[in-house]
Amino acid sequence: MSLTKEQVKELSSMARLALTEEEINCFTVQINEILGYLKKLNELSIEGEEPAPYGVPLNNIMREDKVQSSFNRDSVLVNAPQQESFCFKVLKVLEED
């Protein structure tokens, strides 16, 4: 399976990256190179294996339903690029083209 430029563009839109034309060209070649290498995985026998997506074989790690103090609002907002009325401020949402 190799990707076309259009598909790479679609991926970049999914990942919210406004890539330049140059980047798309370059990434398309590189992504296909990597995808080609990853085909190697087809040689590995994974018969009967269950996916192991966790780093550690533990279960049932939970906490009790206890309220803990929240962060001071000033420290919450300190890194905000823009704020108003103690809220984070962003440009309005337009429907996607």
């Binding site: 906490r63 339903d65 206890k66 309220v67 803990q68 103090s69 929240s70 962060f71 609002r73 919450v76 907002l77 009325s85 103690f86 809220c87 984070f88």
Partner: peptide, 22 residues
């Protein structure tokens, strides 16, 4: 619940904006 799904912040309502965050 008294606290959130993934942290200990309170679920109370209403509250001043961004005071129940971490």
């Amino acid at each position: 619940t008294d606290s959130k799904l993934c942290c200990g912040c309170s679920t109370k309502f209403p509250a001043e904006p961004n005071t129940l965050t971490c």
